[in-house]
Structure formats: structure tokens, C-alpha cells
């Protein structure tokens, strides 16, 4: 069973094709990086996966089920099987850290207060935050902490699939390293499938088991980091073989 299968996906926005004929299969336990230059539709592809946008052509299956159709109950149940970390965290600014993480749990309307409290505290400690951070408001958090809280919220419903939009953007190299490390550890421990959009080669090299390169509105190549580096294409040469990229990739 593949966790994500995208078949002949095309998306047009305001008369312009953002992506055409995209095919991707993601297996359980994969950590797939979507890379590509700015504005090549990486984030759009992620929004299509989440169901925020509907494809113009083609279809997306998550856990072998279509994203749309089949009634609200089924759609909602499917959406609870993946967690999303938005680029800027998208924490609810009016709720404390505690309430942000508790929000999806309360939405289930099945869990009692004590269990929710224990679960929130567990998620906080899983993302390496302290109990006293629970009472802070999102505006008081640093960028790295906000990302961690958002990760804890994304993990609240025990998802099988984690979708990350630019997980390291806006973090300094040190924070970025420890956040990538955290995602990798949690991903392994919880047996998560992870798909992440990035233009940060360092986090890609660190985290990805497979890399999908998006350019010219399609998937240019998909494979392990080594396989991608072996291809000869102007975009790949530009993206991976610039001086800076080489420095980063050699270090890994």
C-alpha cells in the first residue's frame, strides 16, 4: 500500500499551468523531499495534497483513498490521518501553546480533560519543549519554538503521514539542524511517512530518503540523493552543483 499516489496530476491557476502530468508514489516510511527553485509550485503541490486546492486534472490518493468525495465523515477521517506543519507555523494566535496542541484533540469530542492534558504534555516533551512553555502565547515564542509547537500540534492526532512546508525556513543553521534532527528521530520512532517541501539542501541531504525535483511544471527526476546527483540536466546542474550546494553536499 502506498501512502501517497499522485497520478497524472495537473493544476491550472488563473489560466496558467502550475504543474502538468505529475506522478509520484510514496511508500510507508519514506522521507521524500520536494525540491525546486522558487515559485516552481512546490507549495502548490503540497496544498493539493492537503486538499486545500482541487486538481484540474488527474487524481491524488492518500492511503489508497481519494481525497474528495464519499461524504463529510469519510473526508474528515482521512484528513485526521495526516498532520501538516505550515511554513510559518500557523499557530492560532489567540490560543496559548497548550490550547493550540489541545485543539485537534478537543475537536474529536471523545477524550476527557485529564487525558487531553496528559497527551498535550507528552507531545510538548516529544518536541523537546518544557511544561512551562505550555502557558506562553504564540506571539511570545521564538521562530524555532513556534515551529516545534506547530509540529506538536501536527502530531496531536497520531498521524501516519506528516507534511512539512519549508520546515527549516526562518531558522538559524543551529536551530535548523536540531529541528531536522528532531523530525528525523520522531519520524523513525513513530514510523511516520514524511513529505517535505524545501529549498534548503542541508535539510534535504540530512532527512530525505528520496528526492523529487520539481521544475518546468513537472517532476524532473525522483530517486535517492545519489541518483539525482548523477543526472545531467541544466536545472539539476544549477541547483545541486553550484559552489555553495557542493560545499553543503560534501559535508554530508
Amino acid at each position: 500500500m502506498s501512502v501517497i499516489s499522485i497520478r497524472d496530476l495537473s493544476f491550472r491557476y488563473e489560466g496558467e499551468w502550475i504543474c502538468r502530468g505529475i506522478n509520484i508514489e510514496v511508500e510507508r516510511g519514506d522521507m521524500v523531499a520536494l525540491v525546486g527553485g522558487s515559485g516552481c509550485g512546490k507549495t502548490t503541490l503540497l496544498q493539493l495534497l492537503i486538499g486545500l486546492l482541487t486538481p484540474t486534472e488527474g487524481e491524488i490518493l492518500l492511503f489508497d483513498e481519494p481525497l474528495f468525495g464519499g461524504g463529510e465523515v469519510r473526508e474528515r477521517a482521512l484528513r485526521r490521518r495526516f498532520g501538516v506543519l505550515f511554513q510559518h507555523g500557523a499557530l492560532f494566535s489567540a490560543l496559548s501553546v497548550y490550547d493550540n496542541i489541545a485543539f485537534p484533540l478537543r475537536e474529536l469530542r471523545r477524550l476527557d480533560v485529564g487525558l487531553i492534558h496528559d497527551l498535550v504534555m507528552l507531545k510538548l516533551s516529544m518536541v523537546e519543549l518544557l511544561p512551562r512553555h505550555a502557558l506562553m502565547m504564540p506571539a511570545e515564542l521564538s521562530g524555532g519554538m513556534a515551529k516545534r509547537v506547530a509540529l506538536a500540534r501536527a502530531l496531536a492526532l497520531e498521524p501516519e503521514l506528516l507534511l512539512l512546508d519549508e520546515p527549516t525556513s526562518g531558522l538559524d543553521p543551529d536551530r535548523s539542524d536540531s529541528f531536522v534532527h528532531l523530525i528525523r528521530t520522531l519520524g523513525r520512532e513513530l514510523g511516520l511517512t514524511v513529505v517535505f517541501v524545501t529549498h534548503d539542501l542541508e535539510s534535504m541531504a540530512e532527512l530525505a530518503t528520496r528526492v523529487a525535483v520539481l521544475a518546468e511544471q513537472r517532476i524532473l527526476a525522483i530517486g535517492s540523493v545519489e541518483e539525482i546527483l548523477g543526472l545531467d540536466h541544466p536545472f539539476i546542474r544549477n541547483f545541486f552543483f553550484s559552489e555553495r550546494s557542493q560545499r553543503i553536499l560534501k559535508a554530508h
Binding site: M121, L122, L124, S125, M126, L130, P131, R132, A134, E189
Partner: peptide
């Protein structure tokens, strides 16, 4: 056991609150 250990770790941190 690893999962239970993670919960135990969260419990230990929590005593201050």
C-alpha cells in the same frame, strides 16, 4: 517499552508545573 519510556520522561519534566 520505548513509547512508555517517552511518557515517563514527559512525566518527570512535569513535576514543576
Amino acid at each position: 517499552l520505548a513509547i512508555f519510556e517517552r511518557i515517563a520522561a514527559a512525566d518527570r519534566e512535569r513535576s514543576g508545573l
